[in-house]
Amino acid sequence: MAGILVTVGMGPWVFDRLIRAVEPLCAYHDVFVQTGASPVVPSCPHARWVPLDEMQRRLSDADIVITHAGSTVRLVQRLGRVPIVVARRRSLAETGSDRQEHFLRSEEQAGRVRAVWDASTLPDAVASHTAAAAGLLESRPLPAAISDEALTAALDRVSRRLLGFPGRP
């Protein structure tokens, strides 16, 4: 039995397809589902909205994270994990753009994700995740995030250029 966190993000779009797809996992694993705007109610513990600090704790505690293809992907990767990712589809009215599909394709080619394009295969992806994730962690590097110092310097340069002065006296 694995501790599984499922998150669909904080946006206004429903993602019923993913919530329905995790339903079979509820009987075999310790699953918590953040359901967001979706009206679908899973049989496992769930909450519509989860504050950021609680979400970060849940991400750290989970054995496996199943997420939409949003910013959570990087949060999970920064924890040294490999998320299972299902992209929202514009064609299914799950989002307003193709951004998630494009992002997931990009990550699938070079990043530390397990992309699931057919949600009905989610239980299989969970069953094989430990071995698959180990291979991805070994073979695919994660780009470094910018340091605080470099970020501050970059934004200071932008500010100076836009404002033409070094700061309010």
Binding site: G9, M10, G11, L52, G70, S71, L75, D156, S159, R160, L163, P166, G167, R168, P169
Partner: peptide
């Protein structure tokens, strides 16, 4: 630039919040 600017940040939830 060591401070002194007035900055307004417009933000929402989720990834937008993380970025800001």
């Amino acid at each position: 630039m060591s401070g002194g600017l007035r900055v307004v940040i417009v933000s929402g939830s989720g990834g937008v919040l993380l970025d800001t």
